[in-house]
């Protein structure tokens, strides 16, 4: 009896060591590659959002929910991740609906140009910190490149053990920290880098959205229909990568076919008041804080006027939460 007890203890100790090593070599996404942390920040939020944004960096860099709350009382969350592919958007939306049913889902259409998995690194940034669920497993299987294996995701040590030779103090200090890097999913950047030149617009082998993409767009649309959610399509005002007119036409056609609203905010840049000399932090790919606030003010107005949203500035409980968030937000805004 005593022997089996000893053996059990030994096994438990090793399992703990194993778990610790997994944690140790995983990127912490707290000071470096913070985009990897974004997906998990939603879970600890109070689920009171009438609007959910999904999509790639063109949503998390360009839309500030706190500004939309401040100006219109809209409660929203941006569940964007870097290089989020359309089937990942579907999985993330499906997971979100397990927590709450919003009134509106806003989808950025940029990812429609990617029919196949693109990059192993971006897959991890989107998926690593997501809670395990059927949706996550589906997303992993749909996103994996040939050289990847699902064990890379189940046991981080399989993918990240090569980091042992380059662990930094961040890896040790942040083993148990879990600090937010976003404001309701918005990633703030105050740098200014004006739009100067862009690469030549290249001719593509094909401009048609492929089957895989359309099938997931359909799934997203149906998911919203089944849950009585209004699906709104947008194209964020990022000037690069090029949003070909052929792409735009297909989105317009899809929106018309299914009676969806589609806002091409790129075409409305002037109306929004975007100054591409001042309002972008990387030469036009993403808006910075100043651009994002302008865009959020503009778009928040559209949301308020068209989608029957509640003004939660009048709600005590919600306004407490958001005012607290805003004070942190404003403090960091003012920091130089």
């Amino acid at each position: 009896m005593k022997k089996y007890f000893k053996i059990l203890i030994i096994i438990i100790v090793f399992i703990l060591c194993f778990i610790f090593l997994n944690k140790l070599v995983s990127p912490k996404y707290q000071t470096n590659l913070i985009e990897g942390h974004m997906i998990k920040e939603y879970y600890k939020e109070e689920k009171n959002h009438e609007v959910i944004f999904i999509g790639d960096c063109e949503v998390y860099a360009n839309f500030s929910p706190l500004i939309m709350y401040k100006n219109y009382g809209i409660t929203s969350y941006v569940r964007g991740t870097s290089q989020q592919l359309i089937w990942q958007s579907y999985g993330i939306l499906k997971e979100t609906l397990k927590y709450e049913i919003p009134k509106v889902v806003v989808l950025n259409v940029n990812a429609l140009r990617y029919n196949e998995p693109v990059s192993e690194a971006y897959n991890h940034l989107t998926l690593d910190k997501m809670k395990w669920s059927q949706e996550k497993i589906e997303m992993i299987n749909n996103s994996m490149l040939e050289e990847e294996s699902i064990f890379d995701y189940i046991f981080p040590i399989v993918r990240y053990h090569s980091r042992f030779s380059s662990l930094t103090s961040e890896d040790f200090k942040n083993l148990f920290t879990d600090n937010n890097v976003t404001y309701n999913g918005y990633l703030m950047n105050k740098n200014i880098k004006p739009v100067t030149n862009l690469p030549t617009k290249k001719i593509l082998g094909s401009y048609t959205f492929k089957d895989n993409v359309i099938s997931y767009l359909d799934k997203i649309r149906q998911l919203c229909e089944n849950n009585h959610i209004k699906l709104v399509l947008i194209k964020a005002p990022s000037v690069y990568p090029y949003w070909y007119s052929e792409y735009n036409d297909q989105v317009i056609e899809y929106a018309n076919t299914y009676n969806l609203d589609y806002y091409n905010l790129l075409e409305k840049a002037q109306e929004i008041g975007i100054d591409y000399n001042h309002d972008t932090y990387d030469g036009g790919l993403h808006l910075n804080l100043y651009g994002a606030e302008k865009l959020s003010t503009y778009f928040g107005d559209i949301l308020k006027n068209n989608y029957n949203l509640t003004d939660y500035r009048l709600d005590n409980h919600i306004s407490n939460i958001y005012n607290q968030k805003l004070s942190v937000y404003n403090k960091n805004k003012g920091d130089e």
Binding site: V13, L21, V25, N32, A121, E148, I157, H161, S162
Partner: peptide, 27 residues
């Protein structure tokens, strides 16, 4: 148990052994 952990941690297998680190790999 120790061998398993050593092999998992120090073994050269799977992704991550390119000359460029994960952080800098082309996205």
């Amino acid at each position: 148990g120790s061998m398993i952990l050593l092999i998992l941690l120090f073994g050269v297998y799977g992704l991550g052994f390119n000359v460029q680190d994960f952080i800098y790999s082309k996205f």
